[in-house]
Simulated scan of single mutants.
Amino acid sequence: MMGGFIVTIVIALIAGWLGNNIIIRQTPQDIWEACVVALPAAWIGAYMPYFNTFGPKIMDIALVPTFLFALAAAVIFKVVKKVVKQAS
């Protein structure tokens, strides 16, 4: 059980970093914010009933949906943060 949680954290960190690098003009603190946002999304992707059967698994964690959910959350977070910053 703990191994799956660690795999989910590692995937969230990678996806948060990648999502942060997709959007230009980031700062180092934004990387950690994106990773924090990606963690719950990675957890949802890992354990959601239909999606967790897709792709290869490590310690019962489906890698593809976990990564895709975390990446989507990180990118959406960055876009929303950028829009809010420009609006203010």
Rank of each mutant, 00 (worst) to 15 (best):
P40S: 02
L63P: 02
A62L: 06
A87R: 10
P49A: 05
V7C: 07
M48L: 15
V10Q: 03
K81R: 14
I31W: 07
C35I: 08
V84T: 12
K57A: 13
V64C: 11
I22P: 00
V36P: 07
L39G: 04
T27M: 12
R25C: 05
G45H: 00
D60M: 07
K81W: 05
P65F: 03
L63R: 00
V83H: 07
I23F: 10
V37C: 13
I23R: 09
M59C: 09
V84Q: 10
A73P: 13
K85Y: 03
F54T: 09
V80L: 15
V75D: 03
V10I: 15
F67E: 10
Q86N: 15
V80W: 11
T53W: 04
P56M: 11
V79G: 11
S88F: 08
I58Y: 08
V83P: 08
G19F: 05
V75W: 02
V36K: 02
A87W: 08
Y47D: 12
G19Y: 01
M48V: 05
V10G: 03
V37T: 09
A41G: 06
I9A: 10
V79Y: 05
P65R: 00
I31H: 13
M59D: 10
W32K: 11
K81Y: 06
M1K: 12
V84E: 10
F51T: 05
L18A: 11
N21G: 13
I6H: 02
I22K: 02
L18V: 15
L63H: 01
A73D: 07
K57G: 10
K57I: 09
I11F: 03
Y47N: 13
A62N: 04
F77E: 03
P40C: 00
F67P: 00
I22E: 01
T53Q: 14
I22F: 07
L13A: 14
D60L: 06
F54I: 14
A34V: 04
I61N: 03
Y47G: 07
K82I: 04
I44N: 04
T53V: 06
I61F: 02
L13K: 00
W17N: 06
I76P: 10
V64A: 15
I76V: 15
P28K: 08
L39Q: 04
G45Q: 02
V79L: 15
K82Q: 12
V36L: 14
V79F: 09
F67K: 00
V75I: 15
T27S: 14
A73N: 11
V10E: 10
V84F: 07
I58Q: 09
V83N: 09
M1T: 03
V36N: 06
Q26L: 06
I22N: 03
Y47Q: 10
W32C: 11
I6D: 03
V75L: 13
Y50D: 15
G55R: 00
